[in-house]
């Protein structure tokens, strides 16, 4: 294993090099310890936040913004998207309400990031 990547834990954007095997990862190129964690995590299980929208029944607000409650594995993003894309909101919700529990068994819930008034 020998991979280079840009650390995004802070604006400095160090160019990291990660070498070694999964149980013994070596990170170099960092300028602060946060870079080590970032480099390791990116190899072992890169996590990403997914934010998107869901369809609603409303004409005035046909989409409601949503996100997952926690970051999920980068590789599962599109899988989650296809489930979310088939969801239609048909009730009133407020920001923070759970719309789908445990999306694709990732452990993350789909939550509304804005309020939605089904009558409106």
């Amino acid at each position: 294993m020998n991979r280079t990547m840009t650390c995004i834990a802070c604006p400095r954007g160090c160019l990291l090099t990660v070498t070694g095997s999964n149980d013994n990862l070596e990170v170099s190129g960092y300028q602060c310890p946060r870079g080590i964690d970032y480099g390791r995590q990116e190899i072992l299980l890169p996590l990403r936040m997914l934010t998107t929208t869901v369809r609603t029944m409303s004409v005035e607000s046909p989409r409601l913004p949503v996100r997952l409650s926690t970051e999920v594995s980068k590789t599962r993003i599109f899988e989650c998207m296809s489930v979310i894309n088939h969801f239609t909101l048909n009730r009133s919700v407020k920001a923070g309400d759970v719309l789908i529990e445990d999306v694709c068994a990732t452990g993350a819930d789909l939550i509304a990031t804005g309020g939605f008034d089904n009558e409106g």
């Binding site: 934010t51 913004p65 920001a95 990031t113 804005g114």
Partner: peptide, 10 residues
Amino acid sequence: EKLTGPEYSW
């Protein structure tokens, strides 16, 4: 906190 735009606005 890492918020989305609508959450920050709220």
